[in-house]
Design a protein around this nucleic acid. Structure first.
Lengths: 156, 156
DNA sequence: CGAAATTATCTCAGTAGTAAGAATGTGGGA
DNA sequence: TCCCACATTCTTACTACTGAGATAATTTCG
């Protein structure tokens, strides 16, 4: 029942991938929390900051939450006065999410800080190593996502 | 306000790290769910399978949940008849978590499948690339975790 | 010994999120 | 035009988990 090298590597890679991501996410979450935001809220503000007003559906796909989740997230940000909903002139089902003046000022102020935190957190790798890691993780992610449809040895 | 290469890389690395991990986790969760388990439940069974009976505190640190979380997880597994609590003979506060016969049979059966799913999900990288990724992610995780105490430019 | 600090688990209220389905609106044929 | 499939958001019930504090047992040490 000896485990193959391939299996050994897969188990180890899964573990270190999870731990590395958790550690980086914890850093990012700590920074967001220091401004009273969750990571999801930060992600919404950041998306609106860099892309301008977005339909809730577009935002939902960008932030990677469920449809119920984006409603909940935007509700919270609206409650904090950072985001508001705008009607869509061409489709009465749809709503835009849009930064308020306060939301815009907040994200403009804290996004550079956020970047600094990430630079700090990722400082364990040289720039060249980071480039290598990006390439490997991109390939890994794309393959894993594609593998999503279909179990191993699936005939489909 | 040009962004430095270092900042650009940090942002990109954070994104691809998160996506890659999410894609792999989704695969692992899908496999666990196909046997009626959450990833947390699977992790508990796996830990007990490979390490033998563990105190709840040991298990909690291994599975990376809060103290309340491990109580909840073990409650669920006890409800499913896969795990039972045993008293500790030398410390009346403590309890061991221990696989039942069914729990043992289940994890013994599905752990190899789980490994296969991971091998499949990680197949986007060659074995050599996986070794490189493991080394990089290990360094990344260790540094990020250590950076946990102390914001960037923190004097502490 | 006995008080204080520590450790181990559990309880409880709250949180961020999912999933399914309802409500509403849109647009393309027959 | 009317109908129907689809798109978009919201609602509701639920889930997995956290964090703070409660409880109880153990260890430390004056």
């Amino acid at each position: 029942m000896a485990r193959t090298a391939r299996e050994e590597l897969a188990l180890k890679l899964t573990v270190v991938l999870g731990k590395a991501q958790a550690a980086v996410e914890a850093q990012a979450a700590a920074h967001a929390a220091s401004h009273g935001l969750t990571l999801g809220e930060f992600a919404v503000l950041e998306a609106l900051y860099h892309k301008g007003d977005l339909l809730l559906g577009e935002l939902q796909r960008k932030v990677l939450v469920s449809t119920g989740g984006i409603t909940y997230l935007v509700d919270r940000l609206e409650g904090k006065g950072l985001v508001r909903r705008l009607e869509c002139p061409t489709d009465r089902r749809a709503r835009y999410a849009s930064l308020t003046r306060e939301g815009s000022a907040l994200i403009e102020r804290i996004f550079p800080e956020h970047t600094e935190w990430l630079v700090h957190a990722l400082g364990g790798l040289s720039l060249a190593e980071q480039r290598t890691a990006i390439a490997l993780l991109r390939a890994l992610g794309q393959h894993a996502e594609a593998a999503g449809s279909g179990a191993p040895r699936d005939a489909a």
